[in-house]
Simulated scan of single mutants.
Amino acid sequence: MALSIVGLSPLHARDSIPSEPLTIGTSYLVSTHGVERRVNVVLPADYDNSDKAYPILIMLDGGLQQDFYLSLGMERWNQLWQRSAPVIFVGVETVDRQRELLPPTGSKAEMVRYPTAGESAAFRKWLSTSILPLVRDQYRDDGRAFLAGESAAGHFVAETWAVAPALFDGYAALSPSLQWDNQSLSHSLAGIEKQDRPPLFISLADEGGETEEGVLRFVSEAGSNLCFADRRTELAHANTLHGLLPEALQYLLPTEADWLEEYGLTLRCSDKMGD
């Protein structure tokens, strides 16, 4: 009787169930700004079963303790509905976000609060000369690359679109922190030479104040090749990524699916500010 009880114990039952590691991608240990960090790459579901090439999506703040799982999950959820085209998903971990994602500031209050901030240009060069070549050397890409980020990373996206638009084929700046440096990015956009730029998805939540002023000014100067998601009455800064990344990917990486509207998976781009 005693042996029978032991044989049916939960421990024994667990030992008899086959298991294997759950592997979803590849993590590369890289370094910039004097700090090591991870670049996490996940391939489209059918990558190994075809010879197709795919666009690259660079997702900022893409560390395992950051937005990696959330943003990857939403990208894969889009795939279930064919809401956006499949991508080589590249989550780039940030370590000192203000240092890496924001340009210098003339605001004394920001200097005190974020004394290391101001090296976005160097981080942008690292992305373009190190990370994109790394991914393209390892995987079948179709030559296109897209950049997405939220908050401070959204400022980085908007800044890159403004000062180096040719680096990527499309941009998603979710609730960008355009209050930074007394809204200098939105002020300077008016003085930047007008040119054809890649598509830009840019959003505004309930931030109000200088952030709202900066975003609205940026949108007014950005031209027509954009989708402005004005969600001031619907979203908070904290849930912008949850609410809008699927829509941003739908805008940047459209498919031919004709059932999206039936299920409420639509783009809601404001024709003008205040819509």
Rank of each mutant, 00 (worst) to 15 (best):
W180E: 01
G143Q: 13
A158C: 09
T160R: 06
R136T: 13
E221Q: 14
Q183S: 12
A190P: 02
G209Q: 14
E213V: 15
A238K: 03
Q183V: 14
A205Y: 02
D230C: 06
I131M: 05
G243V: 09
A236W: 07
D206E: 15
G243D: 05
V157H: 03
L241N: 05
T160H: 10
S120F: 07
N239S: 09
V135G: 07
H187N: 13
N239L: 06
A238S: 07
S151I: 00
G170R: 04
S186T: 06
E234T: 14
L226P: 01
A166E: 15
P246D: 04
L134I: 12
E221K: 11
L200T: 10
F201S: 11
P246W: 01
Q138M: 10
L244W: 00
S175V: 06
S177K: 03
C227Y: 04
E234R: 09
T211I: 11
G191L: 11
L241W: 02
S128K: 07
G154D: 03
H242F: 05
Q195W: 12
P133V: 13
E159K: 07
F123Y: 10
F168L: 03
A164Y: 13
E159N: 09
D137G: 09
K125F: 05
F218L: 11
L204F: 07
H187K: 13
F156I: 02
L244D: 00
L127C: 06
D206F: 07
I192M: 10
L189H: 06
W126N: 02
F156K: 01
A173G: 01
E159Q: 15
T233C: 03
G191M: 11
G143D: 14
D141S: 14
A205S: 15
L204V: 02
L134D: 04
E210N: 13
T211Y: 08
A229D: 06
S220L: 07
G208K: 15
R217C: 08
D142S: 09
T160W: 01
